[in-house]
C-alpha cells in the first residue's frame, strides 16, 4: 500500500517536473483581460482621430495650400496611440502574471519564460516592422497584418506556455484573413481581435485555471 503511494507520488513528481520545466504556466488570464481593455480604449481614441480627420477633409485643399499635412498628422497620432496601447497591455500583462507567479511560488524568470518570450516576440517584431511600413503605404492592410502576425506569434509561443493560447492564435489569424475581404472595416476587426477576443480568452482562462486556486 505504501509502496503504491510511493509510485503514484513518483509519477506525479515526474509529470510536474516535465510540465514546469518546459512550459511557462504562470501566464494569468487577467493579463489577457487587461490587454483587451487597453485595446478597447485605444480603438476608441483611434476612432476619434479618424472622425476628426474626416471632418477636416472638407477644407483639405485650404490646408494643403497652407503647408499643413493632415494625413501625416493622423498617422503620427495613430502611432502614438498604438505605442500607448502596447505599453499599457505589456504593463498589465506583466503585473497580473507576476502576481500569479508569486501566489503559486514559481519563479517569474526562468528558461521557460525566456523561451516563451523569444517565440512570441520574433514573429511579433517582424510583424511590427511590416505594419509600420503598411501604415504609410497601404493602410487598409494594417489591421489584417496586425491580426495575422499576432495570431502566428501566439501559435508559435503556445509551445512554451498554456496550450489554450493556441486557439486564441487561430482565431486572430482567421479574423485577419476575413478582414482582407472587408478592407474598409479594419478598426472594427482590430477591436474585435485585440479587444473582445482578449477579454473573452482572459476570462475563460481565469475561470478555468485561477479561480479555484485563488
Amino acid at each position: 500500500m505504501t509502496d503504491q503511494q510511493e509510485h503514484i507520488s513518483a509519477l506525479k513528481d515526474i509529470r510536474n517536473m516535465m510540465e514546469r520545466s518546459s512550459r511557462f504556466i504562470s501566464l494569468s488570464g487577467l493579463s489577457g483581460v487587461g490587454a483587451g481593455v487597453a485595446a478597447l480604449v485605444g480603438a476608441f481614441l483611434a476612432h476619434r482621430e479618424f472622425s476628426r480627420f474626416d471632418q477636416r477633409s472638407f477644407d483639405r485643399s485650404a490646408e494643403y495650400s497652407a503647408g499643413l499635412n493632415g494625413e501625416a498628422d493622423l498617422e503620427f497620432n495613430l502611432i502614438r496611440i498604438a505605442v500607448g496601447v502596447l505599453a499599457a497591455a505589456l504593463a498589465s500583462g506583466f503585473l497580473f502574471t507576476w502576481l500569479k507567479a508569486r501566489r503559486s511560488q514559481l519563479p517569474l524568470w526562468d528558461r521557460t519564460t525566456r523561451h516563451m518570450l523569444v517565440n512570441l516576440f520574433v514573429p511579433l517584431f517582424a510583424g511590427g516592422c511590416f505594419v509600420l511600413s503598411l501604415l504609410f503605404n497601404s493602410p487598409a492592410l494594417v489591421s489584417p497584418a496586425c491580426l495575422v502576425f499576432y495570431g502566428l506569434a501566439l501559435i508559435n509561443a503556445s509551445k512554451y506556455t498554456l496550450t489554450d493560447i493556441r486557439y486564441l492564435g487561430y482565431l486572430e489569424v482567421v479574423l485577419g484573413i476575413v478582414n482582407l475581404v472587408f478592407p474598409g472595416l479594419g478598426l472594427i476587426f482590430w477591436t474585435i481581435g485585440f479587444g473582445l477576443l482578449h477579454i473573452l480568452y482572459g476570462t475563460v482562462m481565469y475561470l478555468k485555471y485561477e479561480r479555484k486556486s485563488a
Partner: peptide, 19 residues
C-alpha cells in the same frame, strides 16, 4: 531525467533552479 526528457539541452544553473 524528467526535465531532460522534455528539454533537449539544459544547463547547470537552470537545472539547479528548477529542482
Amino acid at each position: 531525467m524528467s526535465v531532460l526528457m522534455v528539454n533537449e539541452r539544459v544547463n547547470f544553473n537552470d537545472l539547479k533552479q528548477m529542482l
